[in-house]
Design a protein around this nucleic acid. Sequence first.
DNA 1: GATGAATGAGTATTCATTCAT
DNA 2: AATGAATGAATACTCATTCAT
Lengths: 191, 191, 191, 191
Amino acid sequence: MPRSKDEAKVIAIFDATLSVVMKTGFNGLKMADVAKKAGLATGTVYLYFKNKEALINALYLHLKTEKTQAFMLAYNPTDDFKTAFTKLWQRYFDISLAEPERMLFIEQFTYTSYLTRKTKEKGDALLYPLFEFLQEGIRKRKIKNIPLPLLISQLMGPIFEIVKLHYNKKIKVTTSVKKSLLELAWKSVSR
Amino acid sequence: MPRSKDEAKVIAIFDATLSVVMKTGFNGLKMADVAKKAGLATGTVYLYFKNKEALINALYLHLKTEKTQAFMLAYNPTDDFKTAFTKLWQRYFDISLAEPERMLFIEQFTYTSYLTRKTKEKGDALLYPLFEFLQEGIRKRKIKNIPLPLLISQLMGPIFEIVKLHYNKKIKVTTSVKKSLLELAWKSVSR
Amino acid sequence: MPRSKDEAKVIAIFDATLSVVMKTGFNGLKMADVAKKAGLATGTVYLYFKNKEALINALYLHLKTEKTQAFMLAYNPTDDFKTAFTKLWQRYFDISLAEPERMLFIEQFTYTSYLTRKTKEKGDALLYPLFEFLQEGIRKRKIKNIPLPLLISQLMGPIFEIVKLHYNKKIKVTTSVKKSLLELAWKSVSR
Amino acid sequence: MPRSKDEAKVIAIFDATLSVVMKTGFNGLKMADVAKKAGLATGTVYLYFKNKEALINALYLHLKTEKTQAFMLAYNPTDDFKTAFTKLWQRYFDISLAEPERMLFIEQFTYTSYLTRKTKEKGDALLYPLFEFLQEGIRKRKIKNIPLPLLISQLMGPIFEIVKLHYNKKIKVTTSVKKSLLELAWKSVSR
DNA sequence: GATGAATGAGTATTCATTCAT
DNA sequence: AATGAATGAATACTCATTCAT
């Protein structure tokens, strides 16, 4: 959690951290590198974050919050379910692909011993609106009645994999690919 | 690569490494801990693996090979496609869930700077039989004609997510859950 | 090469290194000992020198440069050749005997795998002024016309041996001994 | 000191040690390398030498003894002094140049913390016949009356340097070079 | 005697964190 | 607040020596 008001530096540190993690992996993350990349002195980073763990946890929540918010913006309560589903899926897909590093950071973070129980809970809570939406779909008998975590796994799991392939330049995601994937997703969960 | 013939020690080291990684995360992996857990002296580990990176890469390939082989054993070429698909999916699901640590190790490893290009390629090559099988399904018009990596993402992505939830005790995977998931999978990729 | 400006620390490290090497031999040289002797933390030494090899190479050049400069200061171009020779020989002898450790470090270093080709070349280059001087003596027919490396071997070889004997307290170098040795040196190379 | 009778293995170990030291310096000397080079198992070396220090000390004495003996063979008591001096100098020079590694090993060893007082004394004692010879020369007023260690330094110092240059391929030692050096040597010590 | 796998103390080096300026 | 030099605990790896076969 930032200790100061200089929001610009916080952002610079976040960007630098993300960049270093994506280039070197989580185990290549050195505070000195983050500082240098952010254009700051090593000690300065510690003015904004208590320690490495705090920095990583803060970044995680920052990214997850940003992403979730951006994604839920696509939700219009007046849309019928399938339309809403389509919009949300597409937005989620677009966001993930546009900034794969953010998504991959979040993924990787899950595996790290840096993860705090508190951070994890906060992160999970962010998905609450999505839970609500899907719950609604079940109630309306638009999608299958299976536990929400499974539904979400079914929807997000493939996207994670696609993003990895895309990030590693194993595939090229065209409009038709995207259309196919949406179809697969809908077909798998819809009634 | 082992320098001697004592295969038992190699296995002991593999087991110890996996155990330490799962308990402490990838950045908590210390060679001394591996040695102790394996009941060996530190130096002995280095008789079998040149260094930490080599150990991790070897373990990765070992796990991935084992898993892939175990999983492809479920394949019977005389089965009709849907039966074969069902058996393979179930086997993959069972294996992943039965030994989540192995699967999670493989996943985590991907994000590590320890990953060698060569190892990555070898690991990818293991999936070749699966590619063959799915290709066959496409030819027979049993499943949708979309690029194989996408198909595999669609099938494996959800399983990865489920395993994580299961490992973190967020869900309990019952027979009916498993049945539902198989249905989702088949519905999403079948024609 | 120092990364910062605190020249005092560089000197402290050099002194500590020399002292440790002379007390324990080259294979007793431990970075931790150097740091402690220099009154610094282990890591600090690494702020100033990339690694052990770099430290040793730097010290070698430092000592050789210092010694060569101090010794060539005795050279006065207006002196006639024999006078100049005498002054230089005496200065070299005095310096070597006054600080045998420096000379012995330089000698020992030569046998070490730490020696970098680059360092060796730089060190050799320092003797250039001496080559010039002797070349001049040959031209003026004051000393024998034999290849310079041989001449230098003839002059320095005995001094190295004397310093060793002196350092190991096998002999006591009196004024008359010094006088004798100078005579031997001059007699051997003069025409 | 060898513990067994298999002289051939002792020689193989000596040769291997010498070779490794010359290739990698004294600090690159590893018992495993010696064993491999000698065509033996690591443990076997320890059957012949108590430990590394013992091996090095034994090799030192072996080399120094061999060399001194080979060299003193050139001495014929019936020769007049100058003839004897010439023969001895030439023999010493030839031997040193023919097997520079042996000479350099002896030199390097002096700087090592492995050196045992006892070994040192034994090594020094080997030069006793040479002391006798030079003492005789002083008595007969053939050479200058200065302390024997100084005389020996004056004679051997240059040779050591020449061997180093030769070994490092900095000079080529021709017959005329050798002749010059002998002259320098004689001129410097003779009356 | 011979082997070479096993041992584990020893060491160079790194890097999160602190603190004097 | 900002700096970056300094710290020293932590850790990968080595290698002399031992010992079971």
